[in-house]
Amino acid sequence: MTTAEAIALVTTARTPDDLFGGDFPHRAYRRLARLLHPDLAPGAEAAEAFSRLARLWAARDGASASKGAPKGASERAKETVITTRRGTYRIGGVFRRGASAVLYESGPDTLLKLPRSHADNDLMRREAESLETIARDGDPLLLPYVPRVVESFRHRSGGIERQANVLSRVPDGFLSLEEVRRRRPVLDVRDAAWIWRRLLVVVGAAHRAGVAHGAVFGHHVLVHPLDHGLVLVDWSQSVPLGTPITALVARHRDDYPAGVLARRPATPATDIHLATRCVAALMGDRVPAPVRNFVRGSLLSPPNDAWRLLGELDDLLDDLYGPRKYRPLHL
Rank of each mutant, 00 (worst) to 15 (best):
Q237M: 06
L200M: 08
L141P: 01
A192R: 00
F174M: 13
I134L: 05
V186M: 02
L143T: 04
P147V: 08
R208T: 14
A205V: 02
Y145K: 03
T243P: 02
L177R: 00
S238L: 07
L241C: 04
I195A: 07
A135V: 04
G242R: 00
I245E: 10
H207D: 15
R197G: 04
V211K: 04
R181E: 15
A209Y: 12
G159K: 00
D137A: 10
D191R: 01
A212I: 06
R184Q: 15
V249R: 04
T246Y: 06
L241M: 03
V231P: 10
E179P: 01
L226C: 02
G242T: 07
V201P: 02
V231H: 06
L167E: 05
I134V: 12
Q237T: 11
P240L: 11
P257G: 07
D255M: 05
G173A: 08
D255E: 14
L175T: 04
T243F: 09
R253K: 09
E132Y: 01
T133A: 15
L177M: 08
H252S: 14
V203P: 11
E132Q: 12
H219V: 11
R148E: 15
R183Q: 15
L175A: 11
P171C: 09
A192G: 15
P244H: 02
R148D: 10
L200Q: 13
E179W: 00
G218R: 08
H224K: 03
V233K: 03
E161F: 00
L230C: 10
D137Y: 07
L177G: 09
P147S: 08
G159C: 02
V189M: 02
H213E: 13
I245A: 07
R198V: 09
V149I: 15
W235Y: 12
G218A: 15
H155G: 01
T243I: 03
E178I: 03
L248F: 01
E178N: 10
F174R: 12
R154T: 12
S236M: 11
R183Y: 02
G204Y: 09
D227F: 03
Q163D: 13
F153I: 00
P171D: 11
V202D: 14
